[in-house]
Design a protein around this nucleic acid. Structure first.
Lengths: 116, 116
DNA sequence: TCAATATTTCAAGGATTATTGAAACGTGGA
DNA sequence: TCCACGTTTCAATAATCCTTGAAATATTGA
């Protein structure tokens, strides 16, 4: 993940609808969700959801595949972990004390989910 | 770090000048850097650097204090680690396998700096 | 107090991004 | 083949963001 990719990725995550879309896709797992279902879940119009999905795709955070009439999107886990890594490396450059609290996050121990 | 804060923070990081500013401030450490020096370092006009620093401040990623004629900015380490944490919790909700590769990042082991 | 320094604020302009609805496209079933 | 479905594309508009330079503010030292 180079700086340019990170910039685009941050831009993609800075919009409410897109953040919700990505969250749904992460929770859905590798099987993904069809564009239409996503539109219902986040409550926006089909053309608007298409616009934002394209933006997430441009950022490399999701991928699309056709399944019959539907187009199924799924989260790109590698890109997400790459972005976390970019942020950690940027922040920690010379300052490991920044990452330490984040690394204490319990979400990634096996069996743990999102904090309430 | 709630969703609204995260959205603003991602927006702040999605701009090249601001990302450079933040990087300089992180490397500089808690002592911070004066606005004018930052303007020189990143190569933008004083008024433009002021605009972007205000944006970073609005996002909670930096703080400002006056020191004589200068205004000295410094990175808000807590906000940065909070953002990393938000990303990890969001990504890992139900999917710890996303974070695992990011957590293998060597940057945060004591004594390590940014990866080359 | 005056001038110089460091920075911010403001207004104007241009550039990018978001939303909307209509039209177009590809797919599968009758 | 034809129609319905799911989705994308397009054009137009609205909204937001970025840049620029000039003027304003606060501070320091002569």
């Amino acid at each position: 993940m180079d700086e340019r990719q990170a910039l685009v990725a941050f831009g993609a995550l800075s919009q409410e609808t897109r953040l919700r879309l990505l969250r749904s896709l992460v929770v859905a797992g590798p099987d993904g969700i069809a564009a239409g279902s996503l539109a219902e879940q986040v409550g926006v119009s089909p053309s608007n959801v298409s616009f934002h999905l394209k933006e997430l795709e441009r950022a490399g955070l999701v991928t699309a595949r056709r399944d019959a009439r539907s187009i199924v999107y799924s989260a790109e886990y590698d890109a997400l972990s790459g972005l976390i890594r970019f942020l950690m490396e940027d922040c920690c450059s010379g300052r490991p004390e920044i990452c330490a609290p984040a690394l204490a996050t319990p979400c990634c121990q096996p069996g743990e989910g999102r904090r309430q």
